[in-house]
């Protein structure tokens, strides 16, 4: 099975996101990307939507639930949201959605900034291996991998997906 090309998926995702936002009457969505791949996907989506909106950046390392198992990620970057979260409609963007734990951590972190009016979840790939009741609103493509396989997004330009086999 070959991995899809993000350049093919992104225009379709942008169109679907636009439809989704219109259907939910969201005029001014605030974009938030999860470090690092999610930020690249969010930038590509904003470009595809011809949007100049500032992009929020989230590093969820301080919110992960596997801190006791895997420790602190050595390169934690500051989160930066250049807008109010309170009462806003957020579009949360990640590259690969798998167990849903990263999104859980991101939601917790977002709520520490304020109470958003809504959160729309956008992912480039869905690996369909959820361990939590989290579902994306817009997905580039859904894939099923072997248990020892992972997918990594390389970027920022050009974006490309790479298959990895766990040691």
């Amino acid at each position: 099975m070959t991995l899809p090309d993000p350049a093919v998926l992104l225009p379709r995702m942008a169109a679907e996101l636009k439809r989704h936002l219109q259907a939910h009457r969201i005029d001014t969505p605030r974009f938030v990307g999860i470090h690092t791949g999610g930020v690249w996907v969010a930038q590509a989506l904003l470009a595809a939507l011809d949007s100049e909106e500032p992009l929020g950046v989230l590093d969820v390392s301080f919110y992960r639930d596997d801190f006791t198992q895997s420790g602190l990620h050595p390169q934690v970057r500051p989160s930066a949201l250049p807008f109010e979260v309170e009462g806003q409609h957020l579009v949360l963007v990640d590259d690969v959605l798998m167990t849903g734990r990263t999104v859980r951590a991101a939601l917790n972190e977002l709520f520490d900034y304020g109470r958003p009016a809504s959160v729309t979840l956008v992912c480039l790939l869905d690996l369909d291996a959820r361990e939590l009741p989290i579902r994306p609103d817009v997905v580039g493509q859904t894939l099923s991998l072997a248990p020892d396989e992972r997918v990594k997004l390389l970027g920022p330009a050009p974006l490309a997906l790479e298959r990895q086999v766990l040691a």
């Binding site: 390392s61 301080f62 602190l72 500051p78 304020g114």
Partner: peptide, 20 residues
């Protein structure tokens, strides 16, 4: 120092707490 820089940002949030 890099980790401390990230925590400095936490000090500017509405909720100045992370669940680590």
């Amino acid at each position: 120092l890099d980790t401390a820089d990230s925590f400095l940002e936490v000090g500017t949030r509405a909720v100045k707490k992370v669940p680590l």
